[in-house]
Design a protein around this nucleic acid. Structure first.
Lengths: 335, 335
DNA sequence: GTGAAAGCGCTAACAG
DNA sequence: CTGTTAGCGCTTTCAC
């Protein structure tokens, strides 16, 4: 593996000049740049990241912390982050919290060891205590996605989650459903709380009481949503509709329909927050609340790279994106 | 950020002793280990990876190169690789080739800059010319998954792809189909060639001629499979069944059924290689050939870590896993 | 633009 | 086990 010295001697220039050419960190004449670049190409030289990082204290590494890469929603996020980062000369570490905040902290620790230049974090909790732990562990520019975290100064990119819940529940109410169950995620995380709040507001909007809605916590997990839905559906007075607050849970709910041999929307309706790329070939084709994932992710990574480059403090502002109701086949009037 | 010197002075030991404790690279008494570990905890010390890497020449980094993380199949691979690596003290870079071999080479270059300790590579081509390019770019232990590459000495973990094709096509033939189309990936990659060969053998097994099968290349892409299927189905003499050689293409085919208002299996049957976790809620529930992804990935990462640790040369052997036919609703007798 | 030199934090080798 | 030392490859500074 060749070093910067090899390039310098081959190009007949000083080692510091090679560094200047590579990093555009000092003015260099076109002729010198050409000579150096040719030498680099001939030798096949590649700067050693570890040495650059050690010496400069800056790492060209971005950390992306998401709940689960096997969730298509976050896979999209990952694709966007990686490709934008790559164009900016950063590589990306992608790690999964599995919705576990201890795990989240461990990942943060690893990110610190790597001296990542910045983080995009979809956090597991929104409370200030968690925020304090985060602040103790994170020492680099960070953008929060999906949920906010109390006591942190970071920029936040989310859906308008209240509106998402309102749209979802509103759809069911407008179809005439009143005995509705909500498959919720986990308390203490804003994504969940705000979507639930939206559900409540949908009732209020129509002058209805929210009291009858059964809220089930499934930790955003498909498996738990499956189990909980089976439980709900095996009751004598089963709900006529279910609103699911995120995509994996929607799948769990739909699998429970199959297991219970219930047809949707005939026997039970379902509306889910988060859309599916493959909705066309799902059974039933689900009515969903879609979010502009790509735009949201681009906003997050743009802000992050900007903060890294300029060294500016985060604005601490929250940028909310608009959810959109996608009507498909899974919701009908109650039987 | 504290350094190893801070730990040493706090624990009242030599800097080299701290290093020995961290890396278990020299015998240390239990008492000293305890003192050092306490000091580490008190200060919140974390070794700086860049310095370790630079000095030792070894990086505790693994590269995983896959076609597309948004493909659930590879998302599973990524999850397994990351979690096994983490337990072994390695972090993972995950990058996507998008089935483009130039892109594959660029990623390899980045991996070299990072001095990754090893690679798991799902390559885009199997020819020896590509193998030569790979050998020029890769200087670290590597395990190939999914496809083999000529002219490389690496261990290989794959499905028994011939058998997978044989099972898939055999299923259709046994149901009586004769006018069958094969949605194939890309020529020049063993995954594709061997699965196709399996399709041929399924005919031969039954004393039938393969001639009538139309093979369509869709580059493993959902979008292209969708377009090609629409084209196939709009003919006067349309196929009665389609075999899809990988999962995203199966989805593309199924979406084309919806677009063409065709019902499966009534109007056309489909069998796909690669199973779906959410097959229950797909329409139709697809008959597939499943592969033991988790076991295959564990085998790959185990081999890789072993080669990294021992420094042994790869055996160059190919480990084939057994495919399994999963019968669901999407295949019936021809109309 | 050059050339020399310091030093980032760590590992590894060695003499005590 | 300690303490010292060299040096991984690079960036950065400084005098020229």
């Amino acid at each position: 593996m060749s070093t910067i010295r090899d390039v310098a001697s081959r190009a007949g220039v000083a080692i510091s000049t090679v560094s200047a050419v590579i990093n555009r960190s000092a003015p260099t004449s076109a002729a010198v740049v050409a000579r150096v670049e040719q030498a680099i190409a001939e030798i096949g030289y590649m700067p050693q990241r570890a040495a650059q990082t050690l010496r400069s204290g800056r790492s060209r590494l971005i950390g992306l912390i998401i709940p689960d890469i096997a969730n298509p929603h976050f896979a999209t996020v990952a694709r966007v982050v990686e490709s934008v980062c790559l164009r900016a000369g950063y590589m990306t570490f992608i790690y999964n919290t599995d919705e576990d905040s201890d795990h989240e902290m461990q990942i943060l620790k690893m990110m610190r060891m790597q001296r990542v230049a910045g983080l995009i974090l979809i956090s597991t909790r929104s409370d200030a205590k968690h925020g304090a732990r985060l602040m103790a562990e994170i020492g680099v520019p960070t953008v929060l996605m999906g949920s906010h975290v109390g006591g942190t100064p970071f920029d936040i990119i989310t859906l308008d989650d209240v509106r998402a819940g309102r749209l979802a529940m509103g759809r069911l109410l407008d179809l005439g459903h009143r005995r509705i169950a909500a498959m919720a995620g986990r308390s203490g995380v804003s994504t969940n709380e705000e979507r639930l709040e939206g559900c409540r507001l949908a009732f209020a909007d129509r002058g209805l009481a929210f009291g009858d809605v059964e809220i089930v916590l499934a930790n955003f997990s498909e498996e738990r949503a499956f189990d909980e839905t089976r439980r709900l559906l095996s009751r004598k007075q089963r709900p006529t509709a279910i609103v699911s607050l995120s995509n994996l849970m929607t799948i769990g709910v739909m699998r429970a329909f199959v297991a219970e041999r219930l047809e949707s929307p005939r026997d039970v309706s379902i509306v889910g927050i988060d859309d599916f790329e493959w909705a066309e070939i799902m059974n039933p084709q689900p009515t969903t609340i879609a979010q502009p994932i790509v735009e949201m992710t681009e906003a997050a990574i743009t802000r992050l790279l900007d903060q890294i480059k300029t060294g500016h403090k985060p604005s601490g502002r929250r940028l909310c994106f608009e959810p959109r109701l996608v009507v498909r086949a899974s919701c009908g009037a109650p039987a």
